[in-house]
């Protein structure tokens, strides 16, 4: 009853975004056109990274998919279901999320087990049964053990006592505890020290591959962008300006991405005055 899966068979799109637009503070001097017509398709099992300059609208795009606000125009479909007007909490049945801030994804004062208990019923009804009966806790410990961080012995510690890296790893585990149709990662390693960041990045890749997840990851790390995903989406000023397909990913290296950014920057520099110079001096 929850889902009417698009019974198209064959290659259906897990995420379909059409003509998505969002303007903050419209018709004021502070107007920000954060999304200016985004079209994006992710097929099932596709892991795409979004890169782009600061303020290019990456987080806004992710938030629009997650439902933090409603877009001005356009549609969002997940697995064939149109969710454009759904409330954020309702989308959670399809979407797992990890945030940039390690504090954002967990309830600090509650124990690890309680946090995971919440994630175990993501998008499901929550009744008056005890959240953590014995057998659930055992299953929980088994899965937490796969993180290799020894957290299975600390299930009853408040999650706030963990390091940022540990919290982010747990948040990732929680977001994928029930297989989400779409996993959204917003710079989820950015706030970590290099070692933890690498650890969480490796874990991200491992989980996504093992569970064959469809994922959208915002990152500022070019290294991550060329190593982890099988697609890169480059954004600038609310638009997708370049995409690297799966076949291109085999050769894309960091310098090429940097050069592509450079070209985008140069494009900005070409103002009417320069246009005028080129009119006189270009053949």
């Amino acid at each position: 009853m929850l889902t009417s899966t698009a019974g198209t068979g064959g290659k259906s799109m897990m995420l379909e975004i059409r003509g998505l637009r969002k303007t903050f503070f419209p018709d004021t001097p502070n107007e920000v056109r954060a999304l200016q017509g985004i079209d994006l398709d992710l097929s099932e099992g596709c892991f795409a990274a979004i890169i782009g300059t600061n303020g290019s609208g990456k987080s806004t795009l992710l938030n629009a998919v997650a439902g933090s606000f409603l877009p001005d125009q356009g549609t969002v479909r997940i697995d064939g279901v149109e969710i454009t007007r759904w409330e954020e909490y309702r989308r959670a049945q399809y979407v797992g999320r990890v945030f940039q801030n390690p504090f954002a994804g967990t309830a600090a004062g509650m124990t690890i087990a309680e946090n995971i208990g919440l994630a175990m019923r993501r998008g499901l009804s929550r009744g008056l049964r005890p959240a953590l009966p014995r057998q659930v806790r055992d299953a929980m410990a088994d899965r937490v053990r796969t993180l290799g961080m020894g957290l299975e012995n600390r299930l009853d510690n408040p999650i706030g006592t963990l390091s940022g890296g540990q919290r982010q790893a747990l948040t990732l585990l929680m977001a994928t505890w029930l297989k989400p149709r779409l996993l959204l990662l917003d710079e989820h390693t950015a706030a970590l020290d290099p070692k933890s960041a690498a650890q969480v990045a490796a874990l991200t890749r491992e989980i996504i591959e093992r569970e064959h997840l469809t994922a959208l990851m915002v990152t500022h790390s070019m290294q991550q962008a060329v190593q982890l995903p099988n697609r890169i989406i480059m954004m600038h000023q609310g638009r997708i300006v370049r995409q690297y397909s799966e076949s291109e990913m085999a050769r894309v290296r960091v310098p090429e991405l940097l050069a592509a950014f450079d070209r985008i920057r140069r494009r900005e520099q070409l103002d009417p005055a320069v246009s005028d110079i080129l009119g006189r001096q270009y053949l």
Binding site: L270, L278, G279
Partner: peptide
């Protein structure tokens, strides 16, 4: 930044802002 071979009669790459799609300026 875009081949003139792709130009159609509808394009006017010489003018702003269309020129941004056809030419790249070093910027610095």
């Amino acid at each position: 930044s875009r081949s003139p071979g792709l130009m159609t009669t509808a394009d006017s790459p010489g003018g702003f802002p269309q020129i941004r799609d056809w030419m790249a300026f070093c910027g610095e």
